[in-house]
Nucleic acid binder design. Structure first.
Length: 519
RNA sequence: GGGCCGUUAGCUCAGUCGGUAGAGCAACUGGCUUUUAACCAGUGGGUCGUAGGUUCGAGUCCUACACGGCUCACCA
């Protein structure tokens, strides 16, 4: 707006000045509606549609007798025909046509109408009718100016195609995508994506609330960044004179609450990780975590299936959903151990390792070499198996699959398997090649937890910046006794991606992180 | 960080062999009282991402940079 105004902006400013000269408030304070546009559209949907003349007349007499309504919205299209005009108003979700006729609104309103531009906000009063082409409309009797759009609207047919513009100026994307004509069948508008996102979170809360979980809030800023393997953002607290970290996970705080006697808690909130951006990574992302006493990871698998199928039923209305080129079938839940998955998806018969081989250093290195994986020789066996799994199996797991039997080295907060201490009681849920959930039977032995932390500290000292740090207070909490507990985290953004068929996490974040604009 | 692609009017996009910039929407003028990607006639609108270079001449070729997209790496 600082740079030189183009002809369209100048024109719009002129129009605004002329509206003011006509005596209208150019930024009025309120407008009383009887309905939202969506309410009208939904209420009278059955009346719309092409009909013969007599039938149409009957319907319109009936609609007119119902009296006037008052609605408001942003002007998305305008068609002027001499002394009458049509326009579409938008409430962001739905469009409703209005019909303005000079004879019916009078000269003042008609003159005002001449000064309106695409994108302006107006309120109208009038009665509902159906046009001869069958479109539900409002026959306007009076008109009120509500606010000006000083900047020109995007192409009404194609909307905003430039992804950078869509992410940086989401408001423009939201305006334009509500009326874009060119859309794949079933493709959601930007607004609809975020309505669905809200519904997913709402229904998730309801799910846990109904089951007696208590929603809690734990620190977003804390003196230690723990609970996950990731690099943190650092900030400084002036009054205390200490550095604080934006949390990378709420895990250890939530388990302290289990120690304190909460039996079931959950939290839906942001985590922050100072790492790269990708189609499935954003530096801040929304995580659902919950913990429940007297449960183990098997209970959590069942609950996860229940939660996600409930969300699909309510949000998508089906359990077989399209995702990019794939179809994901949420009626088909698989359970595989990590080693079984590696063997199942191993690409080449002649080099395929055995189940036992995947626990043997020499065999693991041979397997990694066969896959051309460049691995750090400092990796331990568990980490190497994890690498191999991610290369061979993860991208191939399309339908929801619980991967179990994680190596203990990869899982410093999980309880070991009762019959094989090389593994922990943990699963990850993989869908469409993405990690959606991660859960385990929580390690509640403070002595063993200390040993695991010490291993992490050693790894950190040998250069692994993502290894965990020692958390003495957490050990102290566990020393007061934590009952057997299961805990899980679900990446909400990725779940929203699946349920709205969006390939990039940026498409399910209203304001994704971008490099700042250079001016 | 590497590779590939993109950046032209407010928006969506063309631009041939290097020869001085095009369309649709939007805007402006006129016409039109049930249109709907309204229509008909006419008009205006450009530092071609930025900075250099090659050339008689660069939107077009070369180099660097900026921003973005995709992808690989990283992110267990």
């Amino acid at each position: 707006m600082q740079e030189q105004d183009n002809d369209q902006i100048q024109q719009r400013k002129r129009h605004l000045a002329e509206i003011a000269e006509m005596g209208h408030a150019v930024y009025p304070h309120r407008f009383d509606r009887t309905h939202t546009l969506t309410e009208i559209v939904e209420k009278y949907r059955d009346q719309a549609g092409r009909r013969d003349e007599a039938e149409l007349e009957r319907i319109n007499i009936e609609l007119k007798s119902a009296g006037e309504v008052a609605v408001a919205g942003r002007i998305m299209t305008m068609r002027l025909m001499g002394k009458a005009a049509f326009a579409h108003l938008s409430d962001g979700l739905n469009l409703l046509q209005v019909y303005v006729r000079k004879n019916d609104v009078g000269d003042d309103a008609w003159n005002l109408y001449q000064k309106l531009d695409l994108g302006d906000w107006i309120g109208v009063r009038g009665y509902i009718f159906v046009t001869k082409t069958g479109e539900l409309s409002i026959h306007v009797s009076s008109l009120r100016f509500l606010a000006k759009a000083l900047l020109p609207m995007p192409d009404k047919y194609h909307g905003v195609q430039d992804k950078e513009l869509r992410y940086r100026q989401r408001y423009v994307d939201l305006i334009a995508s509500s009326s874009v004509h060119e859309r794949e069948p079933g493709e959601l508008t930007t607004r609809e994506v975020f309505e669905k996102r809200a519904k997913i979170i709402r229904e998730t809360r309801r799910f846990f609330d109904e089951r007696g979980y208590v929603e809690v809030e734990t620190p977003m800023l804390s003196p230690l960044a723990t609970g996950a393997a990731a690099r943190p953002f650092v900030t400084h607290h002036n009054a205390l004179g200490i550095d604080l970290y934006a949390r990378i996970a709420p895990e250890l705080y939530l388990k302290r609450l289990i120690v304190g006697g909460f039996e079931k808690v959950y939290e839906i909130n942001r985590n922050f990780r100072n790492e790269g951006l990708s189609y499935k990574h954003n530096p801040e992302f929304t995580m659902l975590e919950w913990y429940q006493a007297y449960s183990d990871f098997r209970d959590l698998m069942d609950l996860t299936e229940e939660l996600i199928t409930m969300l699909l039923d309510k949000v998508c209305g089906m359990r077989r959903i399209p995702f990019q080129d794939l179809t994901i079938d949420f009626n088909d839940w698989q359970r595989l151990t990590m080693r079984e998955a590696v063997i199942k998806y191993w690409p080449d018969e002649s080099t395929r390792p055995t189940i036992d081989g995947l626990m043997d250093r020499e065999q693991l290195e041979k397997a990694a070499a066969a896959l051309d994986i460049n691995f750090d020789p400092k990796l331990n066996n568990g980490q190497l198996l994890g690498e191999i799994f991610e290369h061979v199996a993860e991208p191939n797991l399309i339908n929801p699959t619980f991967i179990t039997e994680f190596p203990t080295e990869l899982s410093p907060l999980s309880k070991q398997s009762a019959d094989d201490p090389r593994f922990v009681e943990r699963f990850e849920l993989i869908v469409a090649g993405m990690e959606i959930a991660n859960a385990f039977s929580e390690l509640n032995d403070p002595a063993e937890q200390r040993r695991r932390f010490e291993e992490q500290v050693n790894q950190r000292e040998s250069g692994d910046e993502e290894a965990m740090v020692m958390d003495e207070d957490y050990i102290r909490a566990l020393s007061y006794g934590m009952p057997p507990t299961g805990g899980e985290g679900i990446g909400i953004d990725r779940l929203v991606m699946l349920m709205t068929n969006r390939r990039s996490i940026r498409d399910v974040l209203l304001f994704p992180h971008m490099r700042p604009e250079s001016h």
